[in-house]
Computed example of a mutant assay.
Amino acid sequence: MIVNTNAIVISVLKYGEADLIVKCFTQKSGLKSYLLRGILKSKKGRFKVSMFQPLTQLELVAKHKDKGSLEYIQDAKLIAHYQSLHTNVVKSSMVLFLSEILRNSIQEEEQNEELYHFLENTFNWMDVHDNIANFHLLFLLKLTRFLGFYPDTSQAEGEYFNLLEGIFQDIKTNEYCIEGGNLQLLKLLLGTNFDELNAIKLNQSARSNFLTMLLGYYLVTY
């Protein structure tokens, strides 16, 4: 079946001497892996390697067999010409980190328009903004909504957040209950959008501690 769809590159893996396996989250078909034959050696081929950098947004014409095997791209073109995502050293490092998170967390092989548009919009936002020190924290938190374990905020006044259950509570019931600075930052970020990130001032230690907590949340619940 020939499919026309927008797609976001999640990861790229060298296969053999000249081929690439490119994993994309597509707007119409969810997660798909494509084999690009000879792309590393062909200078006159249809595709350039630079088109398949992590988080690149593409418009694809692809042949999908939908049998769990590698699919094939017939045509591809850029639909978002990033200004800085792959050229700014700080942003390119964050791109690699986020693409690794997405590679390990997105498993859907069916259409998910909401998740696709979330990724599309947030990467476009990151591309045109300079102060992104806290971007990954809010991105990872908001991504949990689409992965099925967004924190339950019905008891958000609680003095602990239980990473294992994804809920706020008043007493500590296990070793996965967080408090203190990480708890306060979690509550703050739950009510924050990307345009408000600049107002949140964190030192490196606080940022690192919260990221460690978030990654732990992913590990115990997903």
Rank of each mutant, 00 (worst) to 15 (best):
F194M: 13
Y116L: 08
N124V: 05
Y82D: 04
T122H: 00
T5L: 06
K65M: 13
Y217V: 00
D66G: 07
T26S: 12
Q27D: 15
N198I: 02
S154I: 09
D127Q: 04
K41D: 02
F47A: 05
D19L: 08
F210Y: 09
F161Q: 06
D127F: 01
L36R: 01
D152I: 09
N134R: 04
Y218A: 00
L78Q: 10
Y222C: 03
S84W: 15
N182G: 08
G181R: 14
P151W: 05
K14Y: 07
G166C: 09
T144Q: 11
S33G: 04
E159Q: 12
I132T: 11
Y82S: 02
E175P: 08
Q53C: 05
L183H: 04
F25L: 14
L185H: 00
R207C: 10
T5W: 01
L70K: 03
V95N: 01
L85P: 03
N88T: 11
I8Y: 10
F135A: 05
F146A: 03
I79T: 12
K67G: 05
Y218Q: 01
E108K: 13
L78N: 10
S11Y: 12
V49G: 00
R46I: 15
S84N: 12
S84M: 08
E109H: 15
V12Q: 07
T212Q: 12
